[in-house]
């Protein structure tokens, strides 16, 4: 898609993958951070990681298994929180631990059985050897995310403002919440082998946190967060190839650096000491 701009096929696919992953993750990140559900990022990424391990154990597609397993975890979050009367964050912690246990158990088991398994790309990501189909899948998931936010903007904004007030107003909070969980599961499982399970959290949480330092309304946050994520990750891909550096951790470090600068420069934090 960006071949007209970038001649090198490998670099081009890496940029495309990072751009689409940035759009989906950062838009979802704006919603997640406002709802205080940041831990959903690492729970989902580890669910996808466990799913990929299950796929390898069953000798099927790791990515499809990752999608199914993270969808199953997404389907569990709401009902488990409701039934156990626990905060969603506590449920996420339980499911995170379960996913991690499944993944480690299967990886160790497969290694003991002599079926060598490289979990490196799932943990740390790999933007160098991507198939065109993977890029199209990411394009699709970023389009689904944008359409979801545009279609349910009034419901999403009400829930982001206050879940209880939204429910009391007659908003169908659970419907929107469950759709959100499934889109997060889909985005995370498709992004897993690009940025890796350990770093995907950065793409979800950090751009939204940077945007929140400067934006006074949620519409501008929905625009600023993907712009920041796209710019930083595209620069990260360029710098990674130019100086032969590992791209996913480089992008993570760059985003963290931008976040630190944004906290220092944030005019929302400034106090006006002027005397009138």
């Amino acid at each position: 898609m960006l071949e007209f701009l970038i001649e090198n096929n490998v670099v081009c696919r890496a940029v495309e993958a990072m751009v689409f992953a940035s759009i989906a993750c950062s838009i979802l990140g704006v919603i997640i951070s406002r709802m205080n559900l940041s831990s959903i990022g690492f729970t989902m990424s580890h669910a996808a990681f466990a799913g990929a391990a299950i796929g390898m154990y069953l000798e099927t597609s790791a990515q499809i298994a990752a999608i199914f397993f993270s969808m199953a975890v997404a389907a569990l979050i709401g009902p488990v929180s409701d039934k156990a009367k626990m905060a969603a964050d506590a449920t996420l912690g339980v499911l995170f631990a379960m996913s991690m246990a499944v993944a480690i158990f299967l990886i160790s088991y497969l290694q003991n059985m002599g079926r060598g398994l490289s979990a490196g790309s799932l943990l740390f990501g790999n933007v160098v050897s991507l198939y065109r189909e993977e890029i199209y899948a990411l394009l699709l998931v970023s389009a689904i995310t944008v359409i979801f936010v545009l279609a349910f903007y009034k419901e999403i904004s009400s829930i982001m403002f206050n879940m209880k007030i939204a429910e009391a107003s007659g908003i169908r909070v659970k419907v929107v919440y469950y759709i959100l969980l499934f889109i997060i599961a889909l985005s995370v499982s498709l992004t897993l082998n690009i940025v890796g399970g350990l770093l995907i959290f950065v793409l979800i949480v950090t751009p939204a946190s940077i945007a929140s330092q400067f934006c006074f309304n949620v519409k501008s946050m929905f625009m600023a967060a993907p712009l920041v994520a796209i710019s930083v990750s595209a620069f990260g891909v360029w710098a990674g190839f130019k100086y032969t550096l590992p791209i996913p951790p480089l992008v993570a470090l760059l985003l963290t650096g931008v976040f630190a600068i944004s906290v220092i420069l944030s005019f929302k934090r400034r106090i006006n000491y002027k005397k009138y």
Binding site: K154, S158, M160, F161, A166, N217, V218, K268
Partner: peptide
Amino acid sequence: VQNFYFDPFTPFTVEEVVLMGRYGRLGL
């Protein structure tokens, strides 16, 4: 509702919050 608190970083203006009162009756 009773006892609500909105932190200073809540990204919604009063105008937007008041309009949200209409959202429930509009439907999905």
